[in-house]
Design a protein around this nucleic acid. Sequence first.
DNA 1: CTAGGGTTAG
Length: 679
Amino acid sequence: MLSALSRPSLNHLLRSCNDAQALVQIHAFIVVTGSLSYPHSSGHLIAAYARVGDIVAAHSVFRTASNPNIFTWNALIVAHSRRGFPDQVLRFYRLLVSQGRPRPDSSTFTVTLKACAKLFDFRSGQEVVAHASDLGYSHDVFVCSSVLNMYAKCGNMNDAMRMFDEMPRKDIVSWTTMITGFVNAGNPLEAIEVYRKMQAEGVEGDGIVMVSLLQACVAFGDMGIGQSVHGYMLRHHIETGVVVETSLVDMYAKNGFLETAHIVFEKMSSKNVVSWGALISGYAQNGFASDALWMLIKMQEFGFCPDSVALVSGILACSHIGFLKLGKSIHGFIMRRFDFDHILGTAVIDMYSKCGSLLSARELFDRVCARDLISWNTMIASYGVHGHGKEALLTFLELSKTELKPDHATFASLLSAFSHSGLVEEGRHWFNLMRQEYRIDTSDKHYVCMVDLLARAGHVEEAHELIQSMPDEPGVAVWVALLSGCHNHKKLELGQYAAGKVLELCPDDLGIYSLVSNVFAVAKNWDKVVEVRRRMKNMGTRKVPGYSLVEVEGKLHAFRMEDRSHPEYEKIMDLLKRLDIEMRKLGYKPKTEFVFHDLDEEVKERMLGNHSEKLAIAFGLLTTSPGTRIVIIKNLRICGDCHDAIKCISEIVNREIVVRDVKRFHHFRNRLCSCGDYW
DNA sequence: CTAGGGTTAG
């Protein structure tokens, strides 16, 4: 004969049970001894089943409970909340309310309000708030901070603030709710302001508050505040866990301090996939592709399976360096393990496009069901950078047939596609429609596209008039667009005016200075030429070294200008020498004006011949079979001489050559180039 | 006697 346990010891047993099998036995024991009728015991049993992940068993206990009290109900509702089923929380809350008994208590309301917040369901939230206040919970700190959070998550910071001000007692949770609310509303200044008030009232921040503050620093883009938060945490011995430390890693990474981010990461007491994801995305977003990919491998060596965030960052890194082979294999990994969501799908589409495989990008775009506006924008932009303006427009028209509404980014991509393809009429037409029909505010970006489009086609006066009609002060890119158009069409007067504007705005791109200097040189304005040259010399230290990447048999090969370190250097130079002879027969003349040093013509020619893209192409020709297409990824803008040279090379060797520079793709096939002049 | 605030991505 079994004897029943006392109520406290039974409840204690249930609370400490974390093993599914043991729980089943305890359950059987409870049933046999008839202890289920103890108050709270069925609640504890439900909670225990929820803890071990058996929501079905939790349900059945609830159903068989003879007289469920509020504790039993709460146990079931909390079980759904913990397992991430906010809609079920709401469902059982409504069921409870419709029965009229037992009376919901403070916990019922807090959990339900949290569910509304998660679902961004403001209407249900208001319903719950009304009910809670009817039952006299308007001053309950727990209920109040849940209401604050519900308002904040539903984007209603005004109501949240009003209620917060009226709260007689505030605790650390209600303060934090307001701080994070403002951070998420994109108002980091207000968030920091609330924190200051909290401090002034003598409430000391905890780890969670620090997380919010670090996020505020990221949103604010202020490294100084971030570091002082870190310092404060150390001085005040604020308890840190994975989440807090991950936020620190993220803060340093997003501000571009990858070394510090890595040190903090290494020192973490424990790490999880999110910590890895924060560091990897930091590397990927700051252009440190190889570090991102290295850490993606490392995390697996440490036993972590990459989540979609880490994979998206890996994909992003591949896009950066044109690593198609690895991008493809990550794509495969995703297909085996995940369903495509919007973000994964868009990242992979973008990767194919950026690695030169526009067709694969489109194919995936058509196959993936998870498409949102950003996916469409990405596809339109992909056509644009590849110089397929017509297809960009067709895709835009397809988008128009969906429920999605094109935004400023859609039009930026579309207009840019027109400008890269020389579709002047379309550009004018859609620019006007954008403003008049779609009511989208024009930004600097849109003007850059339009000025570029018009000026490139020779309509420099119209482009200038457009600039003069701009509501805000035009940025340097707008003037550069006008300048390059004037340069191409030998409009010297306006060109020099635009050049002056460009110089005023101090761009940090050497290529732009060379364009400026060129315009003055053509106009025989030698004083200005000398001045520009002097400024170029002064910024020599800020020069980014140029490099080109080419993928051969799944391996990336990097070349820098005059890079003699490559084992095949002799063969590469030999091939380039032989090509040079053929190129000259086709009328190629080295454009020595693209060497910005005062040197002999002969030396300049030799320097041009050593440009990284030429080395990479020669290596590609030597190592791939005839007829294969060669894709080059360049970190700077392709130079005008290389542009001419590659046109000829493509014809001589009968290969399709694709060069991606910072702005767009240049497709070369048999002396045709999809983008006209190199600018 | 439980419940409310927190980390990474296109």
